[in-house]
Amino acid sequence: MSTIAEKPVAAASAQKFGSSATQKLLAFGSLVVMLIIFSLATPNFFRVDNMISIMLSTAVAGVLGIGVTFVIITGGIDLSIGTLMTFCAVITGVFITNWHFPVLIGVLAGLLTGSLIGCCSGVLVSKLKLPPFIVTLGMMLIVKGLSLVISGTKPIYFVDTESFNLIAMGTMLDLSAIIPDFAIPNAVLIFFGVAAIAGFILNKTVLGRYTFAMGSNEEAVRLSGVNVDAWKIGIYTLSGAIVGVAGILIASRLNSAQPALGQGYELDAIAAAVIGGVSLSGGEGTILGTVIGAFIMSVLINGLRILNVPQEWQTVVTGLIVIFAVYTDNLRRRKG
């Protein structure tokens, strides 16, 4: 016997499932459409080397996007990721170039720095109950300042340690013997690797489950006897570690830690997540979505550049895409 017989509800739920799947297809679909349009518009676009260029230019923003996706799903936001990325790069630079530690130690120091700062943000958000927007805004400025102080406002170069540059620009997947130019740089492989691990954590582990649960109804999780503060700190720490990866990637690709860079990258990352369907009010989002979102942004910019669209208009178009993506996502929600 059923306690409640509500056919319309069951029907509505099925409908909703359908339209959620459409949304995911929509994001992926627009990416494909973009690729097709650009390919038809210019022969220089759809070429192996350009596709690899696009992937490479997506790597940093994409990894940052993955990091911030966790925080956004909890219903928070992290504005510090751009400058934190730089800070991690600077710390790595200090370890490797100034203190002559092995590359591996420097990389670990960078990742640890990211985790540590993420952890600090997490503590401030959960224990002191400060709004994430404010905490991470403060953190953004703090690490920006620290980057400049520690580096003495000068870039730190990795010229003496060639292996560091190989982290991003070397390649472990070189098929250029079979397909010309088909050598995928490690930065891209690392990006995909981070995405795979993050996807696993988000969908298959307890940490991921609580990420969604907290964004959906934090009080419910607390009343279920879960140590909400500890898990939240964990999520911010993980996010910080992922930002550390982005820091290593940008430093390795530029073969230098540029202390003045970084601000503004957080907005690109957040935009990628939002385009990919991560809800700014929390509780919803996927890693795959964020990755697609990051690709939509970089394909768009790459394509417009190759078409010689004036730069001012490239910026306008990007803005329109962000708003349009959020609008379609909203539309889906309202229907549900």
Partner: peptide
């Protein structure tokens, strides 16, 4: 990234 796109074109 910008310069790469320009050279691509």
């Amino acid at each position: 990234d910008l310069a790469k796109a320009v050279m691509q074109a």
